[in-house]
Write a protein that binds this DNA or RNA. Structure first.
Lengths: 334, 334
DNA sequence: ACAATGTGTTTTAACCTTTAATTAAAAATG
DNA sequence: CATTTTTAATTAAAGGTTAAAACACATTGT
């Protein structure tokens, strides 16, 4: 591996000059520039980002923590930030926590030792967790991408799950439904809790009662949706519509309903949440609350970059609004 | 940010001693060890992986390139390698190519400048591409995770798509189907091509004819599956069964079939490929060819790690065999 | 003619580690 | 007790880069 020294020697100049022509960081005469470039070419020189970062005190690398990158929702957000990384010449170190707090700590520690320039946190476990880990390191610009408080300073991108929950339920009511159940996420997660709150408020505002028999909590995965649905099913009569708090669980309940001969939307209307890419390809196409996932990823990246470039001190709180997307899984009641 | 020097000064020892107690790389007396540890604690010292890597000439970081990490198949494989990374104390730099060759080159260059210890390539674009980029850098251990030849040395993990295609088609035949169509992936991709070849051979072996009307190619995404299906539909009579070359496209055709009032599996049997996690939650549950995705990711990581640790020179070729998983999307013909 | 200014390049220190070589002190040996 | 061996620590170089400071030389103004 050729180093900058080799190039310098080969071109008969100093390393400093080589550095300057490579980085265009000050004028170097035509002739020498040419000589250096030729040497670079001949030696197949590729600079060491390691040495560069050591000196420059930045790595052009962000670290990102997610609960599970296989979850389509997370996957789409991650892709949004990754795309932006590419556009801005950054790299992304991706870590899954899989709900393991130890893994979370370990990963953060590792990322900080690797001196990432910023941290993107989309892992519910963090919230309410007092991360001593952060104390060990210089404060790194951080953006956290779920609601809930943190014990450390960070920008926050909020998805307004409360509004989403309200919107979904309101839509069902508009369509004439009066018996509306809800399959929530794990209620210790702020997003899940807020969607439920939105649901309840919408019901309340419409003067409808909340039937506990039609409430069940899942795990934001297909399995959990299925189980929650079976749960509700086992308790007797079904509602006419169900607000399922994310699309993955909705997939689970559609599948489960099918097995019980319950037709969606004829026997039961369903509205989901997230609008993951495959939602429109469910059978029936899923009516759902759209989350601007790509934008969320983009915004998170941009906020981080801005914090670094502008040396902004205060912490931002950015709200992204959900919208309803109407497809075929909700039947109007007459 | 405290450095090792600060710790040394604070503990009244040399940096070298601090390094030794931190890395347990040689005996240091009880007393001094304690003093150093105390200093580390008090100064909240966290070593710089950057400086460390510069000296040690390894980064404990792998780079991974995929076409799109949102595709569940890729996502699951990525997660497999990421899990293994965590277990072995590595980090993963994830890059999407999104089919863009320029982006591929740029990313590889970046990863190599960052001095990743190894490269995992799961991006079809590479194949048949003569990547001059590699010449600029020291040969980095690489494993490529799709079939097809490469112009550079690398370990290969192969998924035996030919066998998978054969298995799928054979299964349909066993179930009594005689009119069997196929929706392929983009035929310039080796995996797509091989699955088709397996399909054809199975048909041939059973003495069945290949009806071109029942063949269409998609893009390995939902949309492509839909279009391909509409395509076949528009050509007249449907076959009784369809081998759809990945699960995402299968989702698309199930959705499309639903819209045309075609019932799966009563009117049309479908078998998919990949066995992505959500396949069992399709309606009906998708019969499909299981790919050991997690194992693929794991194997890829392990092969890379082994190459590095054992300094193996030759290139391995590892075959992972697909298996059939029977669910509800194929109806036996009587 | 000579100081002042400007230009293009080099020297050198710094970034933070690890580790081979070295030293100093203690322990063992004859 | 003098000498060798062992042990435990330190010194200093190396890893590959950047950039401030220094330098050498040419140009300009008076």
């Amino acid at each position: 591996m050729a180093t900058i020294k080799d190039v310098a020697k080969h071109a008969g100049v100093s390393t400093s000059t080589v550095s300057h022509v490579l980085n265009k960081t000050r004028y170097v005469s035509e002739e020498i520039t040419a000589r250096v470039k030729k040497a670079v070419e001949e030696l197949q020189y590729a600079p060491s980002a390691l040495a560069r970062s050591l000196k420059l005190k930045h790595t052009r690398t962000f670290g990102m923590l997610v609960t599970t990158s296989t979850n389509p929702f997370f996957a789409e957000v991650v892709k949004g930030v990754e795309r932006r990384c590419y556009e801005q010449g950054y790299n992304l170190l991706l870590c899954n926590t899989e709900g393991d707090l130890e893994r979370l700590r370990f990963n953060i520690d590792m990322l900080l030792q690797k001196r990432v320039d910023g941290l993107l946190l989309m892992s519910d476990e963090i919230v309410s967790q007092n991360l001593d880990i952060f104390a060990r390191h210089k404060a790194v610009p951080t953006v956290v991408m779920d609601c809930g408080k943190t014990h450390f300073p960070a920008d926050k991108i909020q998805d307004n799950s409360y509004l989403g929950g309200y919107l979904a339920t309101q839509y069902l009511i508009e369509k004439g439904h009066r018996q509306i159940g809800c399959i929530t996420g794990p209620l210790n997660k702020p997003t899940a809790e807020k969607r439920l709150a939105g649901y309840k408020q919408a019901l309340l505002d419409a003067g409808l009662i909340i039937n506990e028999d039609w409430l069940a909590d899942g795990d934001f995965e297909c399995e959990g949706g299925q189980q929650a649905f079976e749960n509700i099913l086992s308790r007797g009569t079904l509602p006419s519509a169900l607000f399922v708090c994310n699309d993955m669980m909705a997939l689970g309940v559609i599948n489960s309903a099918g097995k019980h001969g319950i037709s969606i939307p004829d026997d039961l209307s369903i509205i989901g949440y997230d609008d993951i890419k495959i939602a429109r390809f469910f059978t029936p196409s899923l009516t759902t609350i759209h989350q601007p996932k790509f934008n969320l990823g983009r915004k998170a990246f941009d906020t981080l970059l801005d914090k670094i470039q502008s040396k902004r001190e205060n912490d931002l709180e950015i709200k992204l609004e959900p919208t309803l997307v109407e497809r075929d899984s909700v039947k109007p009641m007459d």
